[in-house]
Simulated scan of single mutants.
Amino acid sequence: MHLSKVKNENNVYGSIINFEEKISYKLLKRVFDILLSLIGIIVLAPLLILVAIFIKIEDKNGPVIFTQIRVGKNEQEFKMFKFRSMVSNAEELLDSILDKNETEGAMFKMKNDPRVTKIGKIIRKTSIDELPQLYNVLIGDMSLVGPRPPLKREVEEYTTYHKQRLLIKPGCTGLWQVSGRSEVGFEEMVDLDLRYIKDRSLIYDVKIIFKTFKEIFKSKGAY
Rank of each mutant, 00 (worst) to 15 (best):
L47F: 14
L167G: 03
D193K: 02
L202G: 07
E156L: 07
L94C: 05
Y161Q: 01
I97E: 10
N136S: 07
S24Y: 03
S201T: 08
L138N: 04
N18Q: 15
S201M: 06
F78Q: 09
D99H: 11
K73W: 03
L35G: 12
I139T: 07
T212C: 12
R70L: 08
K29V: 11
K111I: 06
I216Y: 00
I168Q: 06
L138T: 02
P132T: 12
Y25T: 05
R148P: 00
L131Q: 08
L44M: 13
P149A: 02
I97F: 10
G185A: 05
N61L: 01
G40L: 11
M189P: 00
I39Q: 08
Y135C: 03
K82Q: 08
E130V: 10
L98S: 06
Q164N: 08
K29Q: 15
E130T: 11
I57F: 13
C172K: 10
G105T: 10
E9F: 07
Y196M: 09
E157V: 01
A106P: 12
T67I: 02
M110W: 01
Y13C: 14
M80G: 01
A90W: 03
E77A: 14
K22V: 03
I16H: 15
V71Y: 12
S15V: 06
R30H: 14
K60S: 14
I55Q: 05
I57V: 15
D33M: 13
S88W: 04
E188V: 04
E58C: 04
L138K: 06
G174C: 09
G185W: 09
L50H: 00
P63I: 11
N18A: 15
V137K: 04
V184M: 02
P170R: 01
K82P: 08
D199K: 13
H162F: 14
N101M: 05
K5I: 15
G180Q: 04
R148Y: 00
L35F: 13
D33Q: 14
E102Q: 13
K56T: 03
Y223F: 14
L48M: 14
L167T: 04
K60L: 12
Q76M: 10
S85K: 12
E75D: 12
G140M: 08
I122N: 05
S182I: 00
I49Y: 11
I97D: 12
K100W: 06
